[in-house]
């Protein structure tokens, strides 16, 4: 509260108001909001919550990766040092998962970036109907993976899948194909489903970035005789660079960390053809209850991601401009 109403000549009513103020919690908070630590009081609930549910579990999780923790063998326990990490080096599934993760992330990211760029460039134009179209095209990103995955499984079904039917009618296929049962097509098909779900993320960010490019740059280039293709390479892409780099980093993190869709579509099969690191770690924890090894796999994923993010931002030189 301000101080001027506490001057010497207080009336009865003023003193009464002050007395009420003292017991009223809102007014107590109001006075608190004038103190120097106000920002920290605002942050306090979040800090306490995040310390309890993020910081503490994270430290706990990293500590687990150096222990033998199995839910079904309570007496396992104990510090095992780097044993899980050593085991990983001799684990063929780990190396296969790592390879699959790289394929999964690179292909999905490229496909999503391509789809996102094409859709954003089209939707960015000021033509009637495109606002509604934008909303509809963004929709998949907000849909649950459980529905997305099973919907595509329905369309790709080896007996009654509509996409199989269309591909056969168009002459691309001789007969219906079990896309997720064939090790040579399972991962790439899953990439298509993941891209369907998440390309709108790129669309969303790239539309916003395209709006930020001044119209005059294109006009000036056109006056200088630049073709549409030249303008795309020399104006649009460089102007989008920062947003593309940021979007790719966020998407790579998402693709590496969340095994949801592969868990729904294939559970890593057939064989281990679609086993990625995140799924391997989850299955190790969920089915094997080997929390120590699963934790170690997660720590390795985090380290790989941090190295990637650092190197990628470094190489693309985005930070240097700021």
């Amino acid at each position: 509260m301000t101080t001027w109403d506490r001057s010497s000549g207080q009336s009865e009513a003023d003193r009464f108001a002050l007395a009420i103020d003292r017991v009223n919690p809102l007014s107590w908070l109001g006075r608190l909001s004038e103190s120097r630590g106000w920002a920290w009081f605002l942050l306090l609930p979040t800090m306490v919550l995040l310390a309890l549910i993020v910081v503490y579990p994270t430290i706990y999780g990293i500590a687990l990766s150096f222990q033998d923790v199995r839910l079904l063998r309570p007496n396992a326990g104990g510090f095992v040092g780097l044993r899980h990490y050593q085991d990983m080096l001799d684990d063929p599934i780990f190396w296969l998962s790592l390879k699959n993760t790289v394929v999964w992330v690179v292909l999905a990211c490229l496909l999503e970036l391509g789809l996102g760029l094409a859709s954003a460039m089209a939707l960015d134009r000021a033509l009637p109907g495109l606002k509604v179209a934008t909303v509809l095209i963004l929709l998949p990103w907000f849909l649950p993976k459980v529905v997305a995955g099973n919907m595509w499984a329905l369309m790709l079904d080896s007996r009654l899948g509509v996409l199989n039917d269309i591909l056969v009618r168009l002459g691309f296929l001789d007969q219906y194909k079990a896309w997720f049962a064939d090790p040579s097509t399972a991962l790439i098909t899953a990439v298509v489903v993941e891209s369907w779900h998440s390309f709108p993320f790129f669309t969303l960010l790239l539309i916003a970035a395209l709006r930020g490019i001044p119209e005059e740059m294109h006009q000036a280039a056109a006056v200088d005789g630049a073709t549409t293709v030249q303008r795309f390479w020399h104006i649009t892409l460089p102007m989008l660079k920062v947003v593309i780099v940021a979007a790719v980093v966020l998407r790579v993190i998402g693709l590496v960390n969340s095994p949801d869709l592969l868990l729904i579509l294939t559970s890593g099969g057939p064989g281990h053809a679609t086993m990625v690191l995140s799924l391997y770690a989850f299955e190790t924890a969920y089915r094997g209850f080997d929390f120590g090894y699963a934790g170690a796999l997660a720590v390795v994923m985090l380290l790989l991601l941090m190295v990637f993010a650092w190197a990628y931002v470094r190489v693309s030189g985005v930070m240097a401009r700021q």
Partner: peptide, 17 residues
């Protein structure tokens, strides 16, 4: 940075806690 944490890395300790 919290976004970088793999889901499994949070799920296991949260499960135990």
């Amino acid at each position: 940075v919290v976004r970088m944490f793999p889901a499994v890395m949070m799920i296991i300790p949260l499960f135990i806690i």
